[in-house]
Structures are given as C-alpha cells and as structure tokens.
C-alpha cells in the first residue's frame, strides 16, 4: 500500500513561495484568488497490509524526518 504524506507550513509561518504563486495567478488574470500556500507531497510505498499500522508508521516518519514540526504540519493518508 501507499502512504501519502502532505507537509504544509503551519498557519502563521510566512510562505513567500505561496505568496509568489498567488501573485503570479493574479497576474495571469485569475480572479478571486485568496491566500495560496505551497507545501509538498511525499508518497511512500509500504510493504505491509494493515492500513492502521501503515498510518502509524507513516506518522512516525513524518514526525521524525518528513516534517519539521517547528514550522510544518503534516497529514497522512493511506491508500
């Protein structure tokens, strides 16, 4: 199965990349664009078969390495 870990900057941490994307979208004429935030998605192939265990394992990975919880939050989905 596959764990998908989404890592985003925490609310309150300035995201200049998101801001630049937002400005670029406005520059391209897209209206109604509010705040844009940029993060990253990490896909991990896991050999196990138990979705709960996989989720726990991926969350452990996220806490330990994939996200820096000083500045980032994360979300794990298992499919």
């Amino acid at each position: 199965m596959k764990a998908v870990v989404t890592v985003m900057l925490k609310a309150g941490v300035l995201d200049p990349q998101g801001k630049a994307i937002g400005q670029a979208l406005a520059g391209l004429g897209f209206s109604g664009v509010g705040e844009v935030r940029a993060g990253k998605v990490i896909e991990i192939e896991l050999t196990g078969t138990d979705p709960e265990a996989a989720k726990t394992q991926a969350e452990e990975m996220a806490r330990k390495l994939l996200a820096n919880t000083v500045i980032e939050s994360f979300r794990v989905e298992v499919a």
């Binding site: 900057l9 941490v13 300035l14 200049p16 990349q17 630049a20 820096n68 000083v70």
Partner: peptide, 17 residues
C-alpha cells in the same frame, strides 16, 4: 543544529525566494 533540536527555531526559504 536547528533540525537536530540543538538550537531552537528553523531556517526558512529566503523571503525573496
């Protein structure tokens, strides 16, 4: 050192990217 928790805080992308 910040990633290892030996110093507090974090270093983000430069504001001008």
């Amino acid at each position: 050192l910040t990633e290892a928790g030996l110093l507090p805080g974090a270093l983000l992308r430069n504001q001008g990217l």
